[in-house]
Amino acid sequence: MSTTTSSVSATSTACGSGVWQIPTTDAACAAKIRGNVTDVMDQCCGDASTHKYENDCGIYCLAQGQDIKKLQNCITSKSGNFNDVFCNAAQNATATATGTKSTSTGTSTSSTGTSTSTGNAAVTNQPISKSGLGMIALLFGSAFMAVLS
């Protein structure tokens, strides 16, 4: 008599703390994905595209054509979810980027100054930081000294 055993490995899809970091520096509101929040975001964001991020745990949109207060109030009132809706700018702030609506189905990734998603990319121009300028100056200074040697 032979017996066979098998095991199933579980993959963790739990949302991490990164869901609380909206992957854009432009004025935006986001929510943890649960219940009807995806549909609510589509309604409340108007002409702004929605973007999923953090392994589809969160969804956000820019405050285009409306201020943060109006966007946040719409999302919380229609979803009934007051604890998981958050924004990254003052109540009277609006987004500086413009674009047409397209819904993203993939995960959004971002680095400082650029928000990129699989549906629609929004790029904001950001000044170069002082440390970035220092690195550039160090690079050119080193190259200049190498030429003089």
Rank of each mutant, 00 (worst) to 15 (best):
T3K: 14
S7K: 15
S7C: 13
V8T: 15
S12N: 11
S12V: 02
G16P: 05
G16E: 03
G18N: 14
G18K: 08
W20Y: 07
W20Q: 01
I22D: 06
I22W: 04
P23Q: 08
T24L: 06
T25P: 01
D26C: 10
D26Y: 06
D26V: 14
A30I: 05
I33N: 00
R34D: 05
G35M: 05
V37C: 00
V40K: 01
D42R: 10
D42T: 06
C44T: 04
G46S: 08
G46Q: 02
G46N: 03
S49H: 00
T50Y: 08
T50F: 02
K52R: 14
Y53A: 04
D56L: 12
C57A: 15
I59H: 02
I59N: 03
Y60T: 13
Y60K: 09
C61V: 09
L62A: 13
L62H: 14
A63V: 13
A63Q: 07
G65C: 06
D67A: 09
D67V: 14
D67S: 09
K70T: 15
L71S: 10
I75G: 06
G80Q: 13
F82Q: 13
N83R: 12
N83M: 12
D84I: 01
V85Q: 06
F86Y: 13
F86D: 01
C87M: 07
N88L: 03
N88W: 04
A89C: 09
N92G: 08
T94I: 05
A95E: 06
G99P: 00
G99W: 02
T100Y: 13
K101T: 12
K101R: 15
K101I: 09
S102T: 15
S102G: 02
S102F: 07
S104V: 14
S104T: 11
T107Y: 02
T109I: 10
S110K: 02
S110H: 05
S111Y: 01
S111E: 03
T112V: 15
T114H: 03
S115G: 13
T116A: 10
S117K: 00
G119V: 07
G119C: 09
G119M: 08
N120P: 10
N120Y: 11
A121F: 00
A122M: 14
V123M: 15
N125K: 10
I128L: 15
G132S: 01
G132N: 01
G134R: 09
M135I: 10
I136A: 10
L138R: 10
F140G: 00
G141V: 00
G141H: 03
S142K: 05
A143T: 14
A143F: 12
M145D: 03
M145W: 11
